[in-house]
Design a protein around this nucleic acid. Sequence first.
DNA 1: TTACCACTTGAACAATTGTTCAATATAGAC
DNA 2: GTCTATATTGAACAATTGTTCAAGTGGTAA
Lengths: 198, 198
Amino acid sequence: MANTAKHDRQEVIQKATYLFWKKGFHATSMRNLQEFIDMRPGSIYASFGSKEGLFKESLQCYADASLARLAACAEASSPLEALKTFIHMAVVDYRNASPSGLCMLVKTLSELTEENAELLAEAKRLLSHIEDALAKLLDQAQACGELDPSKDTRRLARFLQMLLMGLRAYARANDDTDRLNELVDDAFACLGLDLGEC
Amino acid sequence: MANTAKHDRQEVIQKATYLFWKKGFHATSMRNLQEFIDMRPGSIYASFGSKEGLFKESLQCYADASLARLAACAEASSPLEALKTFIHMAVVDYRNASPSGLCMLVKTLSELTEENAELLAEAKRLLSHIEDALAKLLDQAQACGELDPSKDTRRLARFLQMLLMGLRAYARANDDTDRLNELVDDAFACLGLDLGEC
DNA sequence: TTACCACTTGAACAATTGTTCAATATAGAC
DNA sequence: GTCTATATTGAACAATTGTTCAAGTGGTAA
C-alpha cells in the first residue's frame, strides 16, 4: 500500500505523546518512537520533519486533550464543581494512570533549556491557553452567582494553575494517597471559593 | 603533580551541580562535564564511578546548599519571617540568578523515570529532609508564639513545600515579575499564617 | 637518588544518537 | 494497463553517547 496514508496521523501523534509524556524529550529516542508507533524513520521524517517537529505536535495534542477534559467537566456540573473535579482527577486519580503524573507542558518547561527555545515557547503558549480556560470557567462561576463577583478571575486562574502545578509535583515526590487528598483539600480550602458547598 | 589531588572534590561537585541543575541529567553529557570542570574522563570515573554517581553527589550538594540557605534565613530573623524570606528568594530573587529557577530535586523527579530508580529515590529522600526542616521551623514558630499552636505543622510543611514547587514551576512559565510577586502574596495570604504582621 | 603510589591523562571502545536517501510499493487517474 | 503521485522501507551516515585502560606524572618516604 502507498499513496494513501497507512497510518492515521492523529493516532500516530497520540502514541508519540504517550511516550514523550512518559519519558521526556531527551530520554525518548527516535528508535524508541519508531518501535512504539511502528513507523520507519523515513515515514516519520516525511510526516513531521524532525524529532522536535513531532514533539511540538505532541505538546499540542496533550494540550488539546487537557482542554477537552476540562470542557467535559464543565459540561457535567457547575463551573466550580467542575474545577474541583478537574483538579482532583489530575492530581489524585490520574496520578498512576497517566504516563507521568505531571503535566506534560510543565515537564517540558522543566526539562528543556534555551537550546530548544521553540519548544519552550510552545509549552508556555499552550499553558497560557489552559490558564485562559480556567479564567473563563471562573467567569462563568461569577455569572451564575457561584463565585464572589468582586474576585479577580484572571488572578485566581493564575493561582489555580500554580496550585495545580504544585500539587502534581508534590504527588510525584510523595505517593501517600491519604495525605495527597488532605493536601488537595487544604488547597481548596485556602482558595476561599467555598467549594465545599457546591 | 600527582599523588595529591589536583582538584578539590567539593569544588568539582559544585561545578557538576551547576551544570546538572541547569541542563538536567540527560542533556548533560560527560563531555560537557569534562570541559566544565576541567577533568579528564579517567579522573572523573576514578572519583565518582559513573555519571549516575556524580549526579547523586550533586543532588546531595544541592540539598545541603538549600538547607544551609534555609538555616541562614532562620538565623537572621524570626521563624515565620525566615520562611517568607526563603520562599521569596527561591521564587522571585533567584529565579534568574540560579541555573534553572526550579528546585533541582523537583526537576530531577520530573525528568527521570524508573530507569534511574536510585536517583529518583535519592531525590525523594532529600526532598523529605527539606520538608522536615520546614516543619521544624514551623514548630519553632509555635514555640515562640508566632504561630497558632493548634495548627498541624507537619501538614502545614507539606503544604508549604507544595506551594514552593508550584510557585517555582509557574515562575518558569511566566516571567512577569509583578504578577509573580502578586502570586507569592496570594500564596502567603491563603496560608493563614498572618505573615504580614511579623 | 630511588622506589613507590596516588592521581591524571587522552586515545580508543562499542553502542546509540538524530537523520538522510535511493529503492520499493501501490492506490487512483487517464 | 500504463503512468504518476505519494507513502513506506531500511540500510547507512556522521556525530555523540557513557565508559575503559594502559601509559604518564610528580609528590613523598626511604
